[in-house]
Amino acid sequence: MHKLNAQEHAAALRALPQWRHDAVRDAIRRRFEFADFAQAFAFMTAVAQAAETHNHHPEWSNVYHWVDVTWTTHDVDGLSDLDLLMAQVCERAAADVAAPMGAKA
Score class of each variant (00 low, 15 high):
M1L: 08
H2C: 01
K3Y: 04
A6L: 09
A6T: 13
A6F: 03
Q7P: 00
Q7D: 14
Q7R: 10
E8R: 02
H9R: 15
H9M: 03
A10L: 10
A10E: 13
A11Q: 14
A12H: 04
A12D: 02
A12C: 10
L13S: 07
R14A: 13
R14Y: 00
R14E: 15
A15R: 07
P17W: 04
P17A: 01
Q18R: 12
Q18K: 11
Q18V: 00
Q18N: 09
W19L: 09
R20K: 15
H21T: 00
H21K: 05
D22T: 01
D22C: 05
D22W: 02
V24C: 00
V24H: 09
R25Y: 02
R25Q: 12
D26Q: 02
I28Y: 06
R29M: 08
R29D: 07
R29V: 06
R29N: 07
F32C: 02
E33C: 06
A35V: 06
A35I: 02
D36P: 02
D36M: 05
D36T: 04
D36K: 04
D36N: 15
A38I: 08
A38S: 08
A38L: 11
Q39H: 07
Q39Y: 01
A40F: 01
A40C: 02
F41L: 14
F41E: 00
A42D: 12
F43I: 07
M44H: 06
T45E: 02
T45R: 06
A46T: 03
A46D: 04
A46I: 00
A46Q: 11
V47H: 06
Q49L: 15
Q49W: 10
E52R: 10
T53K: 14
H54G: 07
H54L: 14
H54V: 05
P58C: 05
P58K: 08
P58W: 08
W60K: 05
W60A: 07
S61P: 00
S61T: 13
S61A: 11
N62D: 06
N62W: 08
N62M: 10
V63R: 12
Y64E: 08
Y64G: 11
Y64M: 05
H65R: 15
H65C: 09
V67D: 06
D68T: 10
D68C: 05
V69P: 01
T70S: 15
T70V: 15
W71Q: 05
W71T: 00
W71F: 15
T72I: 03
T72M: 07
T72Q: 11
D75I: 11
V76P: 08
V76F: 08
G78S: 14
G78P: 12
L79M: 13
S80K: 12
S80C: 10
S80M: 13
S80G: 12
D81Y: 09
D81H: 14
D81Q: 14
D81E: 15
D81T: 15
L82H: 12
D83W: 10
D83Q: 11
D83N: 13
L84C: 14
L84Q: 09
L85C: 08
L85S: 08
L85H: 15
M86V: 04
M86D: 00
M86I: 09
A87T: 12
Q88P: 01
C90Y: 03
E91G: 07
E91D: 15
R92Y: 00
R92I: 11
A93F: 03
A94N: 06
A95E: 15
D96S: 09
V97Q: 01
A99Y: 04
A99G: 05
P100V: 07
G102N: 12
A103W: 14
K104Q: 13
A105M: 11
